[in-house]
Design a protein around this nucleic acid. Structure first.
Lengths: 213, 213
DNA sequence: CCTCAATAACTGACTGGTCAGTTATTTTTT
DNA sequence: AAAAAATAACTGACCAGTCAGTTATTGAGG
């Protein structure tokens, strides 16, 4: 392709796949994979249906691409941020949760958890990929931090694996909720307040001082 | 039902709608509404497709019926059980969570949260019904209990509305998980242990003193 | 600078299969 | 035998995926 250039079409061409992915993600999240028509994806991306098939094999390949392309950079960034963090385990938990919420709660990935949950049954391979390479990887960050905190005496001794899931559950819940019932029904759901309350209760709950049992 | 005699077919006939609902629920949860074929629902219920249309207007009416018929009795029972409960707020929270998990974690309703989350976008009216008449109603049970506990000095002062959501989030998360990623990927998810850990951390987290029990 | 041909990007009408819903027919019950 | 229940064959709308044709872009020759 042209190295130099009269850019209008060149630039658009390079951006196409991403534009199509964004359109597809939005619709897959909103209506589900099966109920989304390729015509619609195309229209939303500002192209014709034929063009979508220039960049993606078929509908399923488009779904795969949406999940894989969007997830990788976000996760890498999160891991880097954690690796470079210094401070108490408690602060790191706070940072992880804020980070996660900034990324998945608002960004383009916001709808991914709902999409994956809804389609896991129909695309087991993709679900496996997501579970192994995304969820587990993210959970490990929490689990390690919790183990660190226990070792340092900040947190009381507890099942770190279960607690890591506990730390994430309200986050996942919140982002799924935002894209389902919150849209049509549960309008008085305030994610920010909810996440704050979670941080508050969770950190109190695992604190070494308040140990029960 | 049959006042006299050959009861076998009578009974079957009376049970049909429920059998069809169960079949439909299982498939809707597993594959999603759009990807489920009416032929399949019928086959699973042990009847032909035409029969399904003897009992339900159309596919959407079947979905509505699945949600509404299954939910009402369970919710009523839960409220009754709570109304008759005496003891500390802490015990009541424990009872509510166990109750919820016994009902939604294992029973026939097990898949409902996933189904509603996945289809809320395509059926806003149904989502609204579910949100108002089911979720809010269930949440009120938790919220009242928390307010009671705060008033009695068992729990520290906190945002009861947010805390009620926090109490439920891991439960919802767990039952959604069981029907999505846990099926194909995250096999080492142990719901019982997870719920136990939740009870433990949550109750410590909202405890007034820091000394539980 | 202005053709004009070659190529890259894109389009939308068309096809073949699928599936929700209907209807004519058969089976079961009374 | 009549009525009720159930079936299986049928219909028509819909949609993923294709492909023959159109439009934009580049580049060479005049």
């Amino acid at each position: 392709m042209g190295e130099h250039g009269s850019g209008r079409w060149q630039r658009r061409k390079a951006a196409r796949p991403d534009e199509i992915r964004d359109a597809a993600l939005a619709l897959f999240v909103e209506k589900g994979f099966a109920a989304t028509r390729m015509d619609e994806v195309a229209r939303r991306a500002g192209v014709s249906k034929g063009t979508v098939y220039l960049y993606f094999e078929n509908k399923e390949a488009l779904l795969r691409s949406v999940v894989e392309e969007l997830v990788e950079p976000a996760l890498a960034q999160a891991e880097a941020q954690v690796a470079g963090h210094h401070g108490s385990a408690r602060d790191l938990i706070r940072a992880l949760i804020s980070q996660w919420w900034a990324m998945v709660g608002h960004g383009r990935l916001s709808g991914l958890p709902k999409l994956m949950v809804a389609e896991a049954g129909n695309f087991p391979e993709l679900a496996r990929y997501f579970s192994e390479k995304v969820v587990k990887r993210a959970r490990r960050l929490f689990q390690r931090t919790l183990e660190l905190g226990i070792a340092q005496g900040e947190f009381r001794p507890l099942d770190a694996a279960a607690a890591a899931r506990l730390a994430m559950a309200p986050l996942v819940y919140a982002s799924i909720w935002r894209h389902s019932l919150a849209c049509c029904g549960d309008e008085d759901f305030d994610p920010e307040r909810f996440i704050q309350a979670h941080l508050d209760v969770f950190l109190s709950g695992i604190d070494a001082a308040g140990a029960c049992e």
